[in-house]
Design a protein around this nucleic acid. Structure first.
Lengths: 140, 140
DNA sequence: TATTGTTATACTCTATAACTATA
DNA sequence: TATAGTTATAGAGTATAACAATA
């Protein structure tokens, strides 16, 4: 295949990948708004299935720990999480969802399962295919 | 399928989509750096196959026109584009790649064709599959 | 000495609004 | 009156560096 054709295909496919990812993000933002939670808090809440140190959350969100402090402040203010002292290491504060936080997390989960573009647009076997190919891309 | 399972699958697949898109972006950034062009300029240069009004570039980059002015300034300073007066409408400035700009664009193209994750990881039929599924997602 | 979380600050990216020159 | 591009300014999102408490 010519360089030009390969380039055109690489461009198009990469752009579609970017667009699909953005669609997915936008859908999540819509869901968060529908539920009434700022989207950056919603992402964090999804990751707090079990209580976790703030540093661990920073690592999962791929951000600096200094970003977690105000984020935790906001979640606390909204009554979504508590800062809980760790039993063994007194430096550590665990972020633990409150009852309200768990409820929000559950609702987010339900709506994501219903509305996520990959779930809406693809059947089970197509999803399996997609997963396989994304895996190949990510492991290259 | 249970809500929990659907949620887990939606999460995983969406995350993989996001990760693959990010990998693609990072690869492009690497290529731009290798060639010695700031990545935001590289994106613009790729879109300037033919000379285009600044507003048109803004539309393609999905940004405000006020963002294009400093971007064009930088490209001009590096000798990659010229601001050319439009023959018919004197309000319009066309951004046109210089010889140097065209060379940079060509090099970017070659490297993208070689290194883009979708090209590296998938063969032609897999890419066709991926394209079909991304299309379904984007048209939902 | 290294690590957790906090604070103050600064930086990057991008948009908004007001402006000018044309149309 | 509307549009192309420019300018000044402001905001969102995030990081860096220094710090206190604890390990």
């Amino acid at each position: 295949m010519s360089v030009d054709k390969r380039l055109a295909e690489a461009r198009q496919l990469s752009q579609m990948l970017l667009d699909a990812a953005e669609l997915s993000k936008n859908r999540f933002a819509q869901i968060a708004e529908e539920i009434g939670v700022p989207v950056h808090l919603a992402r964090a809440i999804c990751l707090l299935e079990t209580a976790a140190p703030m540093t661990e959350l920073a690592s999962k969100l791929a951000c600096d720990k200094s970003y977690i402090t105000p984020l935790a402040d906001q979640m606390e203010k909204l009554g979504l999480v508590d800062r809980v002292a760790d039993a063994k290491d007194r430096r550590i504060k665990l972020l633990e969802l409150t009852a309200k936080g768990r409820l929000v997390r559950e609702r987010l989960g339900e709506r994501v399962a219903q509305l996520s573009p990959v779930m809406v647009s693809l059947n089970a076997s197509e999803r399996a295919h997609l997963e396989k190919m994304l895996m190949q891309i990510l492991n290259a």
